[in-house]
């Protein structure tokens, strides 16, 4: 048990070391989750719209060679 306690204690600097790691994990993990959720949401929206829109419009929207129209 003493081993774990001394590890968590970080030589008396636990209040600085652990927040640094937790902050990095929260920011990077959160950023990934938000980016992914946004992509999924937009993909769902697009799918709905394409099903509703039918074939002719979709081909026009994609444009020649699969270009994204601007």
């Amino acid at each position: 048990m003493g081993g774990i306690e001394s590890f968590l204690g970080m030589g008396g600097y636990a209040a600085f070391v652990w927040p640094a790691y937790l902050l990095a994990a929260a920011v990077m993990g959160g950023f990934w989750a938000v980016s992914r959720a946004e992509l999924k949401r937009r993909e769902r929206q697009l799918q709905e719209l394409e099903q509703r829109g039918g074939g002719r419009r979709r081909r026009r929207a994609e444009g020649p060679g699969g270009q994204v129209p601007r």
């Binding site: 990077m28 950023f31 990934w32 980016s35 992914r36 946004e38 992509l39 937009r42 993909e43 929206q45 697009l46 719209l49 394409e50 829109g53 419009r57 979709r58 026009r60 929207a61 994609e62 994204v68 129209p69 601007r70």
Partner: peptide, 30 residues
């Protein structure tokens, strides 16, 4: 690696968003 991974994820999101906007424009025009 993390940057490249999440950046590509976000670029994909932007491309889908561009398609969405174009389709929505077509719908309102049509």
């Amino acid at each position: 690696f993390y940057y490249l991974w999440v950046m590509l994820l976000r670029v994909r999101g932007e491309l889908v968003e561009a398609r969405l906007r174009a389709l929505q424009r077509l719908e309102t025009e049509g």
